[in-house]
Design a protein around this nucleic acid. Structure first.
Length: 613
RNA sequence: GAUCCCGUAGCUCAAUGGAUAGAGCAACUGCCUUCUAAGCAGUAGGUUACUGGUUCGACCCCAGUCGGGAUCACCA
């Protein structure tokens, strides 16, 4: 309901006060509903009258008439009027804010780098200026990163940027799943088929190299399964008894026992993978403050189970397995230790959470993990709560939907995946091809052009993914993701580049003058000008909403809306060619402010804002 | 079987319980001698899966039906 500060401080409170003063409605408390005025009506803010009229027992028309004097009585600190116009349309009262208001509001500046950026405090859970552990990425080390990881990376990175700009201290972490049967499969295949080769010699990225062996393992395994089915076994028997799987299991045991040969091979192959991952992260522009390795954390959590047993919140069954009973909160019972005393996945997660609390003393923790694990996190947080950790209620699962291809679900087993590196190369190549085509950028040096192409290609990719509500499953259409027209990242970048190139022509003295623009000049603002100014005021609310809902799409929406408003302005209003000096100054100031906000909002999405394109 | 999520234009996505459900892509029509046409302006496209209910008002809340996905392992 907090559309922005103007509501809360300048309209909502006076309205409530006015209402309370009317003897007619003694004791009646109102909940005004405000919203942005729809484009086709005069005004910027709308008060919805239906509810108020009902509570007050009068018709909207009458209420609207009664409110007239209130609006004209509202003034700014300097005595200038706050409200420019008030029009009732049906059950809606559309208020236009005075130019004086907009000027004063704008004078504070809208920008992240501006000291006055002081977001409205979010909901209680969000708190302000808290220390937050933010987990994202968390790959397995047996194969390269794919599109699913990319959605995760982009969401995590953008939330990092958004929460940081609101003053939170963010610790970015990833869990690297570096141990387990999956990596043993790659290791085994390399031993069998690798003949001592390495990524360098094969001219491959390390993660792709290791991934190849995972695929080779799967092929060999499938062949064995087929063979065994042919010799009379059921599929299930054949699958569980295939010799190569047995070998992989043996290798895992050897690893757990610290077998030197196996551990060395494991270290070598993981190192290859990390090198590959780093390269991908680097190109995507994302990073981490701390890596947690599963090989170092997978034994954590057992002490917590003991603690829980002692507290009486867990129970041990006849076979010796330990359970957390969650039926009181509508969940099932969850096993925490097998009857042989070994731990399961969630045991490790409990331990890791505690470890992070010890490491960082965080106020909040966010896990960026796909929605197939919704239930898992419900259970995890519930158990942490039962163990008595007060921070359990401040853990949040940033859940996001799977990425589908137009042909259906991605299936890594069947090789139906979009590889992250391929994808990045593709968007870059397309952007570069487009630049070569265009006359504008022919003179640019090849190296610079490649870098610019990467910035533009990534803008297309990132915006395409981030503009979708994380909670929703999305379809990734490769063709659409490469689009650079319309509702896309390059569209926003383009508006920024246009401004940059225009401002580069403004003489330095005039730039300084433009900072002290006035705009009275005896005329009102043109629609395109006012639209831009309205858009500016949406920046802070958008960022806050994105933070509260863990949804960068609100920032993407803002960036797109601002770019659209600017393009209209650019089309309708001359800037450098405007002869009237005050108007020219004012428009330069508008451009400058727009440029700052386009830059900032793109930055929050992890997108670069080049000065030319 | 139980629980959870989703269903909006041909396609991809928007829409704190509020106005005539909005954008982009694709299609069609205009606009580069003018600050970058990766742009602007316009046309066309909808029984918001279906049936009821609550409400002054429902894409949104409730119940049910149909369709899609996920989860519920002494797997990770």
């Amino acid at each position: 309901m907090e559309w922005n500060e103007v509501l809360v401080q300048r309209l909502d409170a006076p309205l409530r006060a006015w209402f309370a003063e009317q003897s007619l409605w003694e004791g009646i408390v109102i909940e005004p509903v405000w919203q942005e005025t729809r484009k086709e009506f005069e005004g910027e803010l709308t008060l919805v009258l239906f509810g108020l009229a009902k509570v007050a027992g009068v018709k909207p028309d009458l209420l609207s008439g009664m409110l007239g004097p209130l609006w004209s009585s509202l003034t700014l600190e300097n005595g200038e009027p706050l409200i420019r116009s008030a029009n009732q349309v049906g059950g809606f009262l559309n208020l236009g804010l005075s130019l004086a208001y907009w000027r004063q509001r704008w004078a504070k500046g809208y920008s992240l780098s501006n000291q006055s950026f002081d977001p409205v405090q979010g909901n209680a859970e969000c708190g302000i200026r808290s220390k937050i552990v933010l987990e994202y990425s968390s790959p397995n080390t047996n194969k390269p990163l794919h599109l699913g990881h990319v959605r995760n990376h982009l969401l995590g990175d953008s939330m990092y940027r958004i929460l940081s700009c609101l003053g939170h201290e963010i610790i970015r972490v990833q869990v690297i799943n570096d141990r387990g049967i999956h990596i043993c499969k790659s290791m085994l295949a390399w031993q069998k088929f690798g003949e001592g080769s390495d990524p360098m010699g094969s001219n491959m990225k390390g993660d792709h190299f290791v991934g190849e062996y995972y695929v080779l393992y799967e092929k060999a395994y499938q062949a064995q399964v087929k063979e065994r089915i042919a010799s009379g076994l059921t599929r299930e028997e054949a699958e569980s008894s295939a010799p190569i799987l047995q070998e992989a299991r043996t290798m895992l045991q050897q690893w757990e026992q610290g077998d030197e040969t196996v551990v060395n091979l494991w270290k070598k192959m993981n190192a290859w993978v990390y090198e590959g991952f780093e390269a991908t992260y680097e190109r995507l522009g994302i990073g981490f403050d701390r890596n947690y390795y599963e090989s170092q954390t997978y034994l954590l959590g057992k002490n917590l189970v003991e603690q829980g047993l002692a507290q009486g919140v867990f129970r041990r069954d006849d076979q010796g397995a330990v359970w957390a009973d969650l039926q009181d909160i509508g969940l099932d019972s969850k096993i925490l230790l097998r009857s042989d005393g070994t731990s399961v996945y969630i045991t490790q997660d409990l331990g890791t959470a505690e470890q992070r609390q010890k490491d960082w003393g965080f106020d909040r923790m966010i896990y960026t993990v796909a929605d197939e694990q919704n239930y898992h996190f419900k259970v995890l947080f519930a158990i942490l709560g039962k163990l008595g950790f007060d921070w359990a209620s401040r853990c949040h699962h940033l859940s996001y939907g799977m990425v589908d291809l137009p042909s259906g679900t991605m299936k890594s087993r069947e090789g139906k995946v979009v590889d992250a590196d391929d994808l990045i190369n593709e968007v870059q190549a397309l952007a570069e091809a487009k630049m070569v085509e265009s006359e504008k950028l022919q003179a640019i040096a090849a190296e610079e052009r490649r870098e610019l192409a990467l910035q533009i290609g990534l803008a297309a990719l990132k915006f395409y993914i981030l503009k979708v509500d994380p909670a929703k499953r999305m379809t990734f259409n490769p063709e659409d993701s490469l689009d650079m027209h319309g509702h896309t990242g390059p569209f926003v970048q383009y508006a920024h580049a246009r401004i940059a190139s225009m401002l580069a022509r403004v003489p330095v003295q005039e730039k300084a003058l433009a900072e002290s623009w006035t705009l009275d000049q005896g005329r009102s603002w043109l629609p395109a000008e006012l639209d831009l100014i309205r858009q500016f005021s949406q920046f802070e609310p958008s960022v806050n909403l994105a933070a509260e809902q863990y949804n960068p799409a609100h920032v993407a929406d803002f960036a797109y809306g601002l770019a659209t408003a600017f393009n209209r302005f650019y089309h309708d209003c001359p800037v450098l060619q405007e002869s009237q000096v005050e108007t020219r100054k004012f428009r330069i100031a508008l451009c400058n402010q727009t440029r700052l906000l386009l830059h900032d909002s793109l930055d929050l999405l992890g997108i670069k804002a080049p000065n030319r394109m």
